[in-house]
Every structure is written in C-alpha cells, then in structure tokens.
Computed example of a mutant assay.
Amino acid sequence: MFFELISPALPRPRATAWTGTLRDCLLEARPVVQIIFFVRLLAGLALAGPHLAAIAPATLLAGTVSWGCAMIFVYLYNGAADIVEDRASGHDRPIARGDLPRRTALAWCRGFASAALVSGLYVGPAFALPVLTVLGLGYLYSAPGFGFKRHYLGAALVAALGGSLTFLAGFLLGGGELPDPGITLLATAMPAWMGGVGSVAKDFSDVRGDALAGRRTLVVIFGRRVAGVVVSVCALCVGISFTVVAWMWVPAMRLSAASLLVGAFCVTCFALRRSPASHPRNPYRAFMVSQYAATLSVLHG
C-alpha cells in the first residue's frame, strides 16, 4: 500500500467529479473526529494566548490548514485500509459502501499529506516537525506490515500521541513557549483519556469486523465485560488525577478537569451496564462528549 500511496501513476479525480470526491473524502475522514482535532488545536492556541498578538493571521491560517490536512490524511488512509472490517461492521462510510474507490482515496491521501507538509513548512520548522510526526503515525497505524491498529496497545499509543501532538501544535502555532504548566497538563491528561478510554471504547461496536480482520483489540481478546472494566478504571483514573492536579497546581485547568471527571463517571456507567437495551456505542459516545466538553472548557477559560 505504501507504493500505491506515493506512486505518481495513481489516477486523479476527474474535474467534473472533483467536488463530489472531495465531499466523500471529508465524509470518510469522519467529520465529528475532525472537529474535535480542530478544537484541540484551538485549545493549544488558547493556552498560548499572551503570545497570539504577535502571530500573523496568514501563519495561523497556514497552521490550521496544515493540521487539518494532516488529520484528514490519517483518517482517509485508515478508511482505505479498513474496507474489510468496515463492511463487516456495517459502517456506512463512502469507501465501505463503494462510493469512493480505494485507489482514488489513496490519490487524495497523497494530496492532503503534501498540502500538510507544505503549509506546515510555511509556518516554520518547529511546527512542521509535529506535522511530519503525525503523518508518520497515521501511516504506521494503518499500513500493512506495521498496522498498529491491529493491537490495542499500538492503537492506544497512536491515539495518545496524536492528541498530545495536536495540543502541542496549537500551542507552538500560537507562539507559546515551553515549558508551560497548562499545556503540559492538558497534553498529558487528554491523550491519556484518548489512549486509555477512547481507543478501547470505540471497538465495542466493531467486534465482528475486527475479529474478521484479525485485529487483537481488547474486546476481541478478553471480551466485552473485561474491556468494559478496563475502560471504566482508565476513565476514573484519568478523570480523578486530572482534577486533583488541576485543583492543586494548575487553576486554569479546573473547569476542564471537572468536565472530564463528570464524563468519566458517565463512561463508567455505560461501560459497565449489561442491559440488552444498552447500545454498544454508548461508552464511546460518552467519551466523545466528555472530551469535547473538557477541551472547549479550555477555550472558555
């Protein structure tokens, strides 16, 4: 797949189908996930607030475009690599349902990755390094021969690093100077939330497809009950730790920490609930709402 990704012989979308193909690429990249990455970037910018006035609007725009293109690459490439399991799990995304050909998606992946690097270099080397790193992580997560997605530890690691790099990229884009207690706490607690909670909870509804594709997710290996306990413990540990540290040492993060703590209890309730009426996607939905609330709280502050 790597050679397919970089080969200049890949077909380009026809001009008449350009907008439709772009729409399908954006839908495949999961808009709700793209929005949370954008919010994380804004949270990093907010923590660099005192320095923002010195940053040119063109630089801020280039950085936002760069990170957005990098995230679209990551999820679009993942969709191109996950056709078997997505179809088995019943996902209604463009590649799985056949609206977006895999080779066309890979061609657009190349374009998004190039745009991310070029605009990232415009911002500067310090910003371009996280961009290049997250592109590499996205490739390693999905590519045959690497496929970190196939094991729950690899998936958790990539999820955590991707979140941490997004907060850091926003902070650097805003001219922030390291070390900073706010960005340090946020870039530690939220990635732990993503890696320990979200990376497992998202698999509750995909057991059939993941097993068919040979993935070694926590739910496939140990079952829904054990995975639910793991998600609950991780959620409570992250929520409580974040809150204690914020209340004692980083007051600017208190509202964010409180939001995540409430979310941790919601995730725990859904993850441990065994009622037949409980949708397997509920723990992940609670995770998503919680991270939105915690991250948006940083902007409010």
Rank of each mutant, 00 (worst) to 15 (best):
V229W: 07
A211E: 15
M248H: 12
C234V: 11
A213M: 01
R225Q: 13
L260D: 05
A235G: 09
L212D: 03
V267L: 05
A246S: 12
V238T: 13
V219P: 00
F242L: 11
W247I: 07
S275M: 00
A258E: 08
T217S: 14
V244F: 01
F270D: 12
V220H: 08
V219L: 00
W249M: 13
T268S: 13
S256P: 03
P276F: 01
S241H: 02
T243L: 15
S256A: 15
L255S: 10
G214Q: 04
H279M: 01
T243P: 06
V231Q: 02
F265M: 12
A271E: 04
V244S: 05
P280F: 02
I221N: 00
A257L: 02
T243G: 01
V267Q: 06
P276Y: 00
T217A: 05
R216Q: 14
A271H: 04
V230C: 07
F242N: 07
V262T: 12
A277V: 05
R274F: 06
A235M: 11
V250G: 02
C234E: 10
R274K: 13
G223R: 04
A235K: 09
C266V: 14
A235S: 14
H279D: 15
G263Q: 10
T268R: 11
V226D: 03
L272Y: 09
G223C: 10
G214K: 03
L218Y: 08
A213Y: 01
A258W: 09
C269F: 14
G209F: 04
G209S: 05
S256H: 06
L212F: 09
R281L: 05
S232D: 04
P276M: 04
R274I: 05
V220Y: 03
S278F: 04
V219N: 00
A213D: 15
L261F: 13
S232R: 01
F265S: 15
R216P: 04
F222H: 15
W249S: 14
L212Y: 08
L260I: 10
G263I: 09
